[in-house]
Design a protein around this nucleic acid. Sequence first.
RNA 1: GGAGGGGUGGCUGAGCGGUUGAAAGCGGCGGUCUUGAAAACCGUUAGUGGGGUAACUCACUCGGGGGUUCGAAUCCCUUCCCCUCCGCCA
Length: 422
Amino acid sequence: MLDVRFVRENADVVKMALKNRRSNIDLSRFLELDKERRRLLVEVEGLKSTRNIISEEIGKLKREKRDAEEKVFSMRKLSKKIKDMDIKVNEIESKLSNFMLEIPNIPHSSVPVGVDENDNKTIRSWGESPEFGFEPQAHWDIGVNLDILDFKRGVKIAESRFTLLKGFGAKLERALINFMLDLHTDEHSYTEIFPPVLVNSKSMMSTGQLPKFGAELYKCADDDLYLIPTAEVPVTNIYRGEILKEKDLPLKYTAYTPCFRREAGAAGKDTRGIIRQHQFNKVEMVKFTKPEESYDELEKLTNNAEEVLQKLGLHYRVIELCTGDLGFSAAKTYDLEVWMPSYEGYKEISSCSNFEDFQARRASIRYRMKSKKVRFVHTLNGSGLAIGRTLAAILENYQQEDGSVIVPEVLRSYMGGVEKIE
RNA sequence: GGAGGGGUGGCUGAGCGGUUGAAAGCGGCGGUCUUGAAAACCGUUAGUGGGGUAACUCACUCGGGGGUUCGAAUCCCUUCCCCUCCGCCA
């Protein structure tokens, strides 16, 4: 959520940002409502002020056992008027807040202006794509042949886009989770969290999934609970409604969770393999920082995610998303894209974003400065990494001509010393 | 699920329907003392939204919503959450 005052005073900036994002939100309607609200506020608050003064006088008269009937009578009318005006103000305020909840974040000034993913900028790349002396297979073929991925039974148990991992497939998944968590906690000093994977609507509202993207979420029919689409939701909400201490910032958390997405509107995309699933595992990193430090922390966060790929020896590139491709809540985002032989191209495996105070304002996460003023923190998060896609990348990039797959060295201690899946 | 108790400021915790936006303590901040630190003592310390160039000022906020009243943290209704006991249970 943006700062209402900022929107009011910088309408042209916000309009430009909305245009760059290709959003069709009409700000003028908002500005009208905002003006009307303030006009009414001035009026009704004046009435409330006289009500308070006269009530005080009535109290005094009653204590002195004097007659106050006349004043009480005139106050009855005043109170009624205040009540009516309050209703009007509330109506306008709820319209305004609905409006604010649907306005996306303003892209950071460094973000390239563009229409879609074709306008994203490649920042850097690491490693090289492997040379195969044979025709490489896609991970779904490798996985089925090794009997570690079972697509048919995943569908039988649930529905399409659910996959069963088996034997060394399951073990590799678990190894990746543990490897990444250990890296981020032991070497990057993040604190490990294991959060609830069902959260209430307030939490979803705070990070920006609701109200706009409810169709992406799995909702429990009888409760105000949703399956999380990412650990970002519960972990960012750890401090919802709290005031943090300046000396505790930045706070850095990492969490493994399963993630659940309906993938509404993704019909026909990535239908084969485990790239786009309704349920997938992910290790996430979340930071709460001071505003002046958040962009440094974004670089570090991105580097922390990159290090996972480097240690796994997977070729990747870093992309800076353009304004048109930026997520709703993000001010700036780097995507990490790993090399996938089956795509003969790169596939997103991590997304690292700075939300500035957009989520913090929705969630009311603040910190008290030394000067005693309270300010919103900045929140950041990034995948470190998506486990399923990492597993797919390993199968494809480490495949051998005989259909076996070499286990990257850093994972072997997590795999009981196994060097090769065959 | 059944019975009872409770939700107040950064935290703990008072609060006869009328200077209670809120005592007290802790914590925080500033100061005195000290070579320095601690202790002690003194002072200070809620948030949000309006108006005003500003000094400043007004309104709202005691889990959420509604009601009674001239006036509600205090009374009533409703809802959510937490705790205790019982039941059930990984």
